[in-house]
């Protein structure tokens, strides 16, 4: 089956600086895909190519079987049927909330549709308000309603929660996911925030230096990163030296089961663990680590440990149950839970 949105071999450069290099990406209908990458990796450019604001130097953009950008020609942005929720919402400041939501609708069915959209985003009865009287979260809700009102075949969200504080961000993230799923919308969320990507998306595409380095479910990209770069973009990492032997890897923290890819042969490798894989060891087992500091958080504590990794001791901030007191300076036995990711030495 061919994908709903297909990007094939997309390249784009601005002046001498290449931004995208032959990028491929497929998005199925009804999927919310998060494009996760550091700032400057080209994710905003990719979004603008899909929207039609920029033209690719090479490659094609196909939406629902219709070529939007490519050698066969080009559909202008205003005729692609794509919706956009930009950073900060970009509400038209001279129009009321209702006029904003109804901006893309024909006059006839505006009133009914606007009320329905405002209900959907939880702003019932707010149509008459000017945008500057809304909070940041409410502005984003209006921006979402405005984009969805015209029933776009694809919705683009460009770091839409950037300007919001953490609590609001989580709440809005959950609501947006509910709304998108209720409408079975296909959407691309551009973000550098992995919590946002994991919380909102069905699929995460990890992007680095103009390429997609991994696509998978949030769980897969976090637990089985495809590369060192993908590992560090999707979460905190602990890097250890190691030696791969069959399905296990020898590390300063002992022998660990390894997630081995067939391309990797036995020998020296880079071992990557997530901080939460460092757990207190059952009595009489594990290796000895030194507590550097402890921050008590009630049910849990952040314990900063120095791991016995030879000449170059590694520190890790572990989030452990606070049933014990981990005094600074004390030694504590630690073990590794789960399998380690292994990558070739660069």
């Amino acid at each position: 089956m061919s994908a709903f949105l297909a990007l094939r071999g997309l390249s784009k450069r601005f002046g001498a600086a290449p931004v995208l290099h032959g990028l491929d990406l497929m998005v199925d209908r009804g999927t919310v895909l998060a494009l996760l990458g550091a700032s400057g990796c080209g994710k905003t450019t990719l979004l603008r190519l899909v929207a039609g604001f920029e033209q690719p130097d090479a490659g094609t953009v196909t939406l629902d079987g219709v070529m939007m950008s490519g050698p066969a020609g080009l559909v202008p942005a205003q005729r692609r049927g794509i919706g956009l929720v930009p950073q900060d919402g970009a509400l038209f400041p001279h129009l009321s909330v209702g006029r904003n939501v109804g901006f893309g609708l024909p006059r006839g069915r505006r009133a009914v549709a606007v009320e329905a959209m405002l209900d959907l985003v939880g702003l019932t009865g707010q149509a008459g308000r000017p945008p500057h009287t809304l909070s940041g979260g409410q502005q984003q809700r209006v921006a979402l309603a405005r984009a969805l009102a015209v029933e776009p075949s694809l919705l683009l969200l460009d770091e839409p929660f950037n300007a919001l504080d953490a609590v609001l961000r989580q709440e809005l993230c959950r609501d947006v996911r509910r709304i998108l799923k209720a409408r079975d919308a296909t959407a691309i969320l551009v973000t550098h925030d992995r919590d946002e990507a994991f919380g909102l998306a069905d699929q995460v595409a990890v992007m680095d230096a103009g390429r997609i380095v991994q696509v998978g479910t949030p769980r897969a990209v976090y637990r089985e990163p495809a590369s060192l770069v993908a590992a560090s973009l999707t979460g905190a990492v602990l890097r250890l030296p190691g030696t791969l032997i069959g399905t296990g890897v020898e590390t300063p923290l002992g022998r660990l089961p390894a997630m081995v890819r067939e391309t990797l042969s036995d020998g020296r490798v880079v071992v990557v663990l997530r901080p939460e894989q460092i757990v207190p060891a059952p009595p009489g087992q594990g290796v000895s680590a030194t507590v550097l500091d402890q921050i008590f958080l009630g049910p849990r504590a952040t314990v900063e440990l120095s791991l016995p990794t030879g000449s170059d001791p590694l520190t890790v901030k572990a989030n452990w149950p606070a049933d014990r007191d981990y005094a600074a300076g004390a030694d504590v036995a630690v073990a590794v839970a789960g399998a380690a990711s292994v990558f070739p030495v660069q």
Partner: peptide, 15 residues
């Protein structure tokens, strides 16, 4: 003027 306003209006179908 914020360019995003223009982008949004463009995607909402306005030339």
């Amino acid at each position: 003027l914020d360019g995003a306003l223009d982008d949004v209006a463009c995607l909402l179908g306005q030339g």
